[in-house]
Amino acid sequence: MTSLNEKVAVITGGNSGIGLAAAKLFAAEGAKVVITGRRQQVVDDAVHEIGASAFGIQGDVADPDHHRQVAEIVKERFGHADIYMANAGINTITPSHDVSEAEYDAQFTINARGTFFGVQKIAPIMRDGGSIILVGSLASDKVLDGHAVYAGTKAAINAFARSWAIEFKARGIRVNMLSPGPTETAILEKLGVAPEDHDAFVAMMSGAIPLGRLGQPGELASAALFLASDASSFVTGINLRVDGGMALL
C-alpha cells in the first residue's frame, strides 16, 4: 500500500517547480491530487503530466474567492481534503531602497495573504488528522541580498504555521513549514538569470551551500511527502529546512 493511498491532496501552484514535483510524487503514492495555477493551459499541461488521478483549477491565490471556489469544488468532487500544500508564491529580488509599493504589495498579497486565506477556506472541509504544509523559504532565517520583502512574507508564513499548529490541535491537523534553499527550477529564469548565465549562477550559489549544489525539485517533494504522510504523525509546528545546510553559514 502506498503512503497516501486514497488521500485527497490540494497543492497551490502545483503546475510547476516544487509544486509539480510534489503533485507527481503524491499521485504516485496513491493520492488524488488537485492543483491550482494562474494559467489554464499550464494547469492543463501539468494535470496531463501528473496523470489520471489529478484535477486542475485555474485561479489567483491572491483572491479569497478563488480559495472559496477551490474548497467548494474539492468538497463536491471528493467530499473532503486530507492534505493542503500552500506552495504558490513569487519572489522579486530588489534592494529595499528600490522596492516599489506595487512590488511590495504583490509579494505580500500572493505569498502571505494567499496562504492565509487558502488555509482559512480549506480548513472546514479537511478531515481530522490531516496535514497542512506551508512552503516557506531559507530567506526567512538567513539574510540574502535583495530579499527583505520576500523574507518578510515567508516569516509571516512561519508565524501562521506556529499559530495554526495550536489552533488545529483539537482536530489532529498537523501544520508544518517546508523551507527550501536554492532549488533548480524554472524560477531561476523568472528571477532574471539569463540562460547563458545559468551555469555560472549555479556554480556561484553552489559555493555557498555546504552540500555543494542546488536542491532538486524531487528532493523537496520527498520532504513534503514526509510532512504529508503518517511518517510525520508526531510532527507539528516545525520549520523543516531543506537547504543543503545553507542556513548554517
Rank of each mutant, 00 (worst) to 15 (best):
P180Y: 03
F168N: 04
F234C: 06
F108S: 04
L225T: 12
A123S: 14
K75H: 12
G118D: 13
S16F: 01
A106D: 15
Y104K: 01
A159H: 13
E167Y: 01
H198N: 03
T115S: 15
F234M: 13
P182C: 00
V8F: 07
G59N: 07
D243W: 02
H80G: 03
V33L: 12
H147A: 14
D199V: 04
I57F: 09
F26P: 01
V193W: 08
L4N: 04
A200Q: 09
A71G: 05
A31S: 12
H66D: 11
K142Q: 13
A156F: 09
G79S: 06
L188P: 00
K154Y: 02
A54C: 12
R171G: 03
A186M: 03
I132P: 04
G30P: 09
T12V: 10
D98Q: 14
G130I: 11
I93V: 15
L220R: 02
K24Y: 04
A194P: 05
A194C: 00
G37P: 08
K154N: 07
K75R: 13
E189K: 08
G192D: 04
Y84G: 06
T12Q: 10
F226Y: 15
E6C: 06
A71L: 09
D105N: 11
L248Q: 14
I132S: 05
A200W: 03
F226S: 07
A151W: 02
Q40C: 00
H147G: 02
Q120F: 12
R113A: 12
G59E: 09
S140G: 04
S233I: 10
T185N: 03
V42Q: 13
A21G: 07
V47H: 03
A62Y: 00
S206T: 01
A21V: 08
T12H: 06
V61D: 11
T115E: 11
E219W: 01
A27D: 12
I110C: 15
R77K: 14
M205Y: 04
N5M: 14
D105Y: 07
P195F: 08
G172E: 08
D128I: 08
G59A: 13
L20D: 05
N111A: 11
L249I: 14
R162G: 03
T115R: 10
A112Y: 06
F108N: 01
Y150N: 04
E184R: 11
T109Y: 04
G13M: 11
G245F: 01
L188F: 10
L178M: 12
N158E: 15
Y84E: 08
L178N: 04
L191C: 08
A247V: 06
R162V: 14
I125G: 05
N111P: 13
A62F: 04
P64M: 08
V242A: 10
A231N: 09
P182E: 02
W164D: 02
A247W: 01
M204C: 00
A23P: 10
A139V: 06
S96K: 00
A228F: 12
A62C: 10
G118Y: 08
D60F: 10
A159E: 08
D145H: 09
D243I: 05
R68A: 14
A86S: 15
Q58L: 02
I57W: 11
A200D: 13
V70Q: 03
T153Q: 07
I133M: 07
